[in-house]
Amino acid sequence: MSAVTPPISLRASGGLRRRRLVNKLMEGVGWTSALLAVAVLFVVIVSVAVRAWPALSWDFFTKPPALFGQPGGGISSAIVGSLLIVAIATAIALPIGILIAIYLTEFAPRSVARPIQLVLDVLNGLPTIITGIFVFGVVVIDHGQSAYAAGFALSIVMLPLVARAAQETLLLVPSALREGSLALGVSRWRSVVGVILPTTFGGVLTGAILAVARAAGETAPLLFTCSIFNPAVSTDVTHALPNIPVLIFTYSEQPDQALHEQAWGAALVLMMFVLVSSLLAKALLARSRRKLGR
C-alpha cells in the first residue's frame, strides 16, 4: 500500500496554533475564576476567625452583653433569643410548607399547581426587607416588637424553601409505592400520611435544616420586628429578644473597638452554625438520595 498524502497538512499551522493558544487561555481563565471564588471564601472565613479569636472565651458564651461603657460581657442572651426566634419560625413554616408540598404533588391539577409554584418562587425571591416591613405593618404597629413577630417574619423567608425541598423529595418517591398502596385498597389520605410521607423524612429534614441555616442569618426582617436593645437573658417571646444578626449589625455600625471584637465573635458563631448545618444537610441529602435509589 502506498502512502496516502493527506489533502491538507497535518502539521500544526499558524491558525491551529492560534486556536490552541486561545483554548489554553480560556482554560486558564476557568481555573483562575474557580480559584478566585475559593480564595474569597477562605479569606472571609479566615479573617473572621482570626479577628474573632480574642473575643472567644467562656464568658463570651455564658454572659449577657455588658452595659454601655463597661468592659467584658458576652452574647448569651442573643444566642438564646436567636434560638427561640428560629424555633418559632420553624414551627410555623415546616408544617405549612409540607402541606403545600403534599397538595402540589399529590392533589393539584397541573393548571393549579403551576401558578402556586410561581407564587412560591416569587416569595422566595422577595427582598427580605420587604418581608420585615410587611410583618411590621401587620403585627408590630399594633402589638409592638416581639420574638413572635420576628419568628413570623422568618417563617415567610423559610416557607418557600421548605415547600420546595419537600416537593422535590415527594417527587422522588417511586410511583410503585404510591400505586401499590392504593391498589391494596388503602385510602388516599392513609397512603399519603402512612406510606409516602415517612419515606420523605430525610429530604424534608435536609430542606428544613437548609431553611433554618438561611433564616438564622437573616437580619433585615428582624430589624423591624425584634431590634429594641435589651441585654438581659430572657425567654419571654412576647417581647423583643436580643438576637445575633441584629447584634452584629448594630455593633458593626459603632466606632468602638471592643464592640467590633464582640461582633467578630458573634459573626464567627453565626457563620459556623450556618456552614456546619449546610454541610450536614448536604450529607443527609446524599444519604436519602441513595436510600431512594437515585
Binding site: 472571609v44 444578626p245 449589625f249 456552614l275
Partner: peptide, 18 residues
C-alpha cells in the same frame, strides 16, 4: 462545587461586617 455554594450560605450581615 460545594465551596462555591458555601459562599452563598455566608450570612449577609457577616459579609457586611467583613
Amino acid at each position: 462545587g460545594s465551596l462555591v455554594e458555601m459562599l452563598a450560605a455566608i450570612p449577609s450581615v457577616v459579609l457586611g461586617l467583613w
